[in-house]
Design a protein around this nucleic acid. Structure first.
Lengths: 164, 164
DNA sequence: CTTGACCTTCCCACCGTTGGAAGCCGCATC
DNA sequence: GATGCGGCTTCCAACGGTGGGAAGGTCAAG
């Protein structure tokens, strides 16, 4: 099976298959005499695994771990569960952060007349860095740590007293 | 005020200030004879605006629009409101997607004994692409469109019949 | 004058994915 | 056999936003 068919069958684009191979996530595919990559059903199976894990929001690094657990017949399901729950925790942190943003904006938008006049509590909030809706919104926390994939708000934005 | 102080005062790192200037989000700063960037209170004010918008999850592109609305004294608050609500919609789409992932994983994890035996419904699900928890989870929809910032699951992963 | 903290520019890395260019291959059709 | 098209190959660049670091200039205090 050529890479195109493998892509079609697995739901992973040919580009990404090559990328995953290159970065070592999946094993190097066999080649035809002409240098074409050749895939077995088994490899397509693996690709589908990868695809599904990606759909569940795992990073490529996480998928590598999942794959090795998958292949390890003497794995402990506890390890898999731990990974899954860790990821769920990360997702929930993200969700909370996004919800906080949405709530703030929603509140601000509700306070905005939304007509042809220029006065706008949304801009006012952005300008003053905290106003109207502040008491209604649960306050952002920013620090996402480990879970950069979603939005690189990682760590802190300012050095503050970085070096010290 | 040097860039360091401006960073400290605005909460935007010096690196990002230079980047924003370079990409045209903010205006080029005045320079001292030695070539140092020099910032007024007003510019710090703008930087705080940018920072706050970023905290609310706006993309740099979105912030550019917000800034121009902010500076336009004859703006219509309706335009601002529309932007805000559009962004809220994007956030909510993200949130739904993440929640769906989290729910699926949570359910799977709950079905996993989490001991030293290898049997694991989580891996099973990844393997078969849909199993146990399937009927409990609301089904992912993937397509995020415009709102790539969170996780580039953008569009579809496979060409499928893309061109047609 | 030296030291150290700051500033300058420039280039690189991350993550995952897509796009394109340049060049071969396979197959079908003439 | 020649031509052509679609697939395959590799390589390089881009996206968002951010941080890291090198190599060098500057400023203020000692």
């Amino acid at each position: 099976m050529n890479i195109g068919q493998a892509a079609e069958a697995s739901g992973v684009s040919a580009k990404m298959i090559r990328y995953y191979e290159q970065t070592g996530l999946i094993r190097r595919a066999a080649r035809t005499d002409a240098g074409y990559r050749s895939y077995s059903e088994d490899e397509v199976h693996t690709l589908r695994f990868v695809r599904r894990a990606r759909d569940l929001g795992f990073t490529v690094e996480g998928i590598a771990e999942l794959l090795s657990l998958w292949r390890d017949r003497s794995r402990h399901s506890a390890d898999v569960k731990e990974m899954a729950l860790g990821h769920v925790a990360g997702l929930n942190r993200k969700i909370a952060e996004l919800q906080s943003m949405a709530a703030t904006l929603q509140t601000l938008a509700e306070c905005c007349s939304g007509d042809d006049r220029p006065d706008c509590p949304i801009l006012q909030d952005l300008e003053t860095g905290a106003s109207a809706a502040e008491e209604f919104s649960p306050r952002r926390f920013g620090v996402l740590g480990e879970f950069e994939a979603i939005r690189p708000a990682s760590k802190r934005r300012t050095p503050r007293r970085e070096s010290a």
